[in-house]
Design a protein around this nucleic acid. Structure first.
Ligand SMILES: [Mn+2]
Ligand SMILES: [Mn+2]
Ligand SMILES: [Zn+2]
Ligand SMILES: [Zn+2]
Lengths: 174, 174
DNA sequence: CTGACGGATGATAATTAGTATCATCCGATA
DNA sequence: TATCGGATGATACTAATTATCATCCGTCAG
């Protein structure tokens, strides 16, 4: 879904369904939330919290930046938005320069190397970039590590840190 | 390259060649740098700067955290390491929940949607995860946008922000 | 319609990763 | 061994995000 007209229709539909989805998630529908999802749906720039803040302030001049941050995270939590910058906390480094990919545990942020046999060959083929000059690419699998699987089964109460920092993968299983 | 024995051999070779590669890049070989690349090569955990700092402090108790941050970025710049967390600055959000991927400009951080037709089909096939339970995945193309191509051609002096924040892709063209 | 409840908000402080500054140090070279 | 330029350490600073808490207000039972 990339064409502009199609995107606008998509945005209208999502906005129409938003209040219902909030209630389904047990969340009050506030004017601030509405404005924030509206601004996010209106943008195709994958905006930062700061940019959403700027937009929403035109409607709610008294809104707090903290509310924007909180609400964006909430939207991700209830599946109304996603974070493009997966795993976004502190920088992680790797001295292994051989071509490989990573699995990362969405709970504890453990990162392990993986090799997906066919991926290189497939991705070598050119993609239509409309102006961008390709330099490289990154593939990352989001997963739950063994330890965290155990921990999640036993204690279903998720820890704060995990919830706070979890980003949404581009594609989900199921 | 995932097997532990193989990794250790790789690390030894990389460490042996490190001084030469520093000199080739015009950088003095300092004990701090040696300790930092050694700690990074010794780890398979994709460590944070903080963790490297902890390790290196055992050898150089007076090393500054700033040196560790600076050196890790330097190692990335000369191609002795890479940042796993690509695009790591402020969080970027997306209300578009349809399956799609992203191209991101390594200079100005513009993000655009792309669709790579074949990728879904390829990745449906299972990968060996040794304990991780897959939840989703992310594919991202690093590139240079039209504007930045022009800008880089005219003024070859790279801006500070671009150099500072640029992360290394997992796979590089050329 | 109204009042009560609980989560949301706004203001603000705190945290944290990372960067800038600058005096001093020291590796490289001749 | 003397020189020089980049590296280092100490420190201040920035910027993004999160925590705290008093107040507000959307929801819903009555
Ligand atoms: Mn790796
Ligand atoms: Mn997108
Ligand atoms: Zn885990
Ligand atoms: Zn650009």
């Amino acid at each position: 879904m990339i064409a502009e007209g199609e995107r606008q229709k998509y945005a209208r539909e999502r906005l129409a369904a938003f209040a219902a989805r909030c209630r389904a998630a047990g969340l009050p529908v506030t004017p601030q939330r509405l404005s924030i999802i509206e601004a996010l749906l209106a943008s195709s720039a994958h905006p930062r919290a700061e940019e959403i803040y700027g937009q929403v302030r035109l409607i709610h001049p008294h809104i707090s930046a903290a509310t924007v941050h909180r609400t964006l995270e909430t939207l991700c939590r209830i599946g109304e938005a996603r974070k493009v910058t997966v795993l976004h906390d502190s920088a992680r480094y790797d001295a292994n320069l051989t071509p490989h990919q990573h699995v990362v545990c969405v709970e504890c942020r453990r990162i392990r190397d993986i090799e997906i046999a066919e991926i290189d060959r497939v991705l070598e083929r050119k993609v239509a970039l409309s102006g961008f000059r390709p330099l490289g690419w990154t593939f990352e699998l989001q997963a739950l590590c063994e330890d965290c699987q155990r921990r999640c089964e036993s204690g279903p109460a998720r820890r704060k840190a995990a919830l706070r920092a979890r980003a949404e993968p581009t594609h989900r299983k199921n």
